[in-house]
Amino acid sequence: MNSFFKYFTDIFNGVKSLLKGMSVTGRYFFSPGSIVTQQYPENRKTLKMFDRFKGEVIMPHNEKNQHHCTGCGICANNCPNGSIEIVQDKIETPDGKKERIIDKHIYHLSMCTFCGLCIKSCPSNALSWGQEFEHAVFDRSKLTKILNKPGSSIIKDITE
């Protein structure tokens, strides 16, 4: 008699627990307002990433095509993967002194692990994070970028 009773209470409790779970899924099924999924490729125009999002390393330029990079190479030294290469150039200033400036700031996006040590260690705050994240390309060589724009120069005056 006892096992007979237990048999039916087990069935009853089992069905009850299943219905309890089903009620949760049913509640979400009938309340479409709780859907959190983003329709990603369709919402591209309105999609805005957070300001601090680490998409890629960029070198901000002002409207006169000038940047802050002196070409010291501290970012390249601090990079754990060697994803930054600095090519320096020597110029002669009008008063006859030789000065080192940056020729190319080469950034290998394919090797970057987005640790942020280059940006943190830069003494002149020349680098920052960009929010671009759609990096997929068909050719690997496109992932090697030159961060300083052609014809750009360094901001000499701090007030500029």
């Binding site: 601090r52 692990t113 640790c115 943190k120």
Partner: peptide, 15 residues
């Protein structure tokens, strides 16, 4: 995490 530290999975936030 994304808003404060910039990334979702691999943060490298502590130093």
């Amino acid at each position: 995490f994304e808003e404060s530290f910039g990334s979702r999975l691999l943060h490298s936030y502590y130093t």
